[in-house]
Design a protein around this nucleic acid. Structure first.
Length: 480
RNA sequence: GGGAGCGUGGUCUAGCUUGGUAUGAUUCUGCGUUUGGGACGCAGAGGUCGCGCGUUCAAAUCUCGCCGCUCCCA
């Protein structure tokens, strides 16, 4: 019976089922009554808040400020930039009525805010002194997902942030694009312990309306790549249709240069997939809603009193050190049940305190990520918890990084490419600049160019598809 | 549901009755002078007059239709 409470499938055997069970049973999220929508429960939202707060600090430090935009966008605005609209149109939700009355202009539920934000920006910007303008919005976006939906990875409404900046010149805007990408990479690696590969998207995969798109990608255990964040150079593609002009020092009106960028709660999905195991979630310590759980173990009332007292003391000390800690003193449950439950919920560090421990003035540490247990003296415990949590983070990151590196292949022929792809690997392969080759590869193998890294120039090989001279050696994979 | 009013540079506006190169202020850019509680001078930039059809040699101005916004009454 106990087995049914936890995750009932192995991560390596039925990854998709494992993922869904882990999300739902660990109580991060639940399905909403509408298809394709999910509800974030407190543990899930807490992780999002950690990510948000880490990003907010970095955004503020680099001169960005937060604002808020409404959810409804008039059709006339959404259609102003043609490529952009054509790209999003298939998945836009439309509001056509208020009560029983028909609306004059249909209103879109924001699939993304470029068109609305830039209409406002053009009002706010008059002169070069108003630039750069750097604004970020924390909100949700709505995109009707036709394909199979999956919590955090593909849902019709998702939490995200979208940053939008306006600059007087192209160089400054392009620097913003790469600065933000670095900021994202740092956040994902340092908070979520997920290693990522950064670089450009191909012409085919870039953001609709952008000049180019930078991305950070990671490889998931099922061999699919996950796009974890994007940063777009918009050039003047939006400033022209939206009349986003400013008077320069010579009083000449010029179109501004723009960027936009975003990460979503997809990051949580990536975190679950990369770190989780057969027992469920494994949370990176810096975003874990509870970092340390204390389990008192006792048989007699005498022990109980003593152990609860010590547990409480340790909890207090850890709290004072700003560690998110909780004593699980539920009396109706045995320790073994609690171990399993907290393991499924992915709490990074468990401290067990029993009578045998107390005799030796020690406690037991049980680490979630590698299941290792050892004894620690109570003296100096706080310091050791702090450094242990750091060590867990570092271990999780380096383990994940090693896996990512081990699962990257380099090939030179299409046959090798296909066989490596079946093994679920990230593949570096030469390709020419004819977009048809990329398209045909995608049609035949459903793998696409995930990221073109900065060291990917290669003009001395043959394209795996057409055998013409290659132009680069990007990373391919099937994607989410 | 009924009624009234208004759409003119980024903003506020004049012009419409009586059709003829769109007014002023502010904002914005540059230079100079100023600088301890919202400065000043000079030079410059900025407008498909909400949209469309019509009348006319000519439409911001006249006719009609549409769109948007505001207010009042229920």
């Amino acid at each position: 019976m106990g087995k049914e409470i936890g995750v009932t499938v192995k991560k390596s055997e039925d990854f998709s089922e494992w993922y869904t069970q882990t999300v739902i049973k660990s109580e991060l999220a639940d399905y909403a009554p509408v298809k394709g929508l999910i509800v974030l429960r407190p543990d899930g939202y807490s992780i999002w808040e950690s990510i948000k707060s880490s990003l907010d600090k970095k955004f503020a430090a680099t001169g960005h400020r937060n604002g808020f935009l409404p959810t409804l966008i008039p059709e006339s605005l959404l259609t102003k930039e043609k490529d952009h609209f054509a790209g999003f149109n298939p998945e836009v939700f439309w509001v056509t009525k208020s009560g029983e009355g028909e609306l004059g202009d249909r209103l879109a539920l924001r699939p993304t805010s470029e068109t609305l934000a830039y209409t406002l920006f053009s009002k706010w910007i008059r002169s070069w002194r108003d630039l750069p303008l750097k604004i970020n919005f924390w909100n949700t976006a709505l995109r009707a997902e036709i394909k199979a939906t999956k919590p955090f990875l593909r849902t019709s409404e998702f939490l995200w942030q979208e940053g939008h900046t306006v600059h007087t010149n192209s160089e400054e805007a392009q620097k913003e694009v790469t600065d933000i990408l670095e900021l994202y990479k740092k956040t994902v690696e340092e908070e979520l312990a997920i290693p990522v590969i950064t670089g450009k998207k191909s012409e085919k995969e870039k953001f609709v309306g952008a000049v180019y798109t930078y991305t950070m990608e990671s490889l998931m255990p099922d061999g699919k790549a996950l796009q974890m964040g994007t940063s777009h150079f918009l050039g003047q593609n939006f400033s022209k249709p939206f009349e986003l002009k400013y008077a320069d020092k010579e009083n000449i009106e010029s179109y501004a240069w723009q960027t936009s960028w975003g990460v979503s709660w997809r990051l949580i999905g990536g975190m679950i997939m990369v770190h989780g195991d057969d027992k469920g979630l494994v949370l990176p310590p810096r975003v874990a809603p509870i970092q340390v759980v204390i389990i008192p173990i006792y048989y007699s009332d005498e022990d109980k009193e003593q152990i609860e007292k010590v547990s409480k003391e340790i909890e207090e000390k850890l709290k004072n050190a700003e560690i998110r800690v909780q004593v699980d003193n539920r009396e109706e449950l045995k320790p073994g049940f609690k171990f399993n439950e907290w393991e499924m919920k992915g709490i990074p560090l468990r401290i067990e305190i029993g009578p045998k421990d107390l005799e030796k003035n020690q406690v037991t540490f049980a680490r979630r990520h590698n299941r290792q247990k050892d004894n620690q003296t109570i003296t100096g415990l706080v310091e050791r918890v702090v450094s242990e949590l750091d060590k867990i983070h570092n271990d999780m990151f380096s383990d994940a990084k090693k896996i990512l590196e081990d699962r990257t292949s380099e090939v030179n022929t299409y046959d090798e490419f296909k066989s490596e792809l079946e093994k679920g690997r990230l593949i570096k392969a030469p390709i020419c600049d004819n977009p048809k080759c990329e398209e045909e590869i995608k049609e035949e193998t459903s793998a696409d160019v995930r990221v073109i890294t900065s060291d990917s120039d290669d003009t001395s090989s043959k394209c795996i598809k057409c055998s013409d001279q290659s132009t680069s050696r990007p990373l391919f994979a099937r994607g989410y």
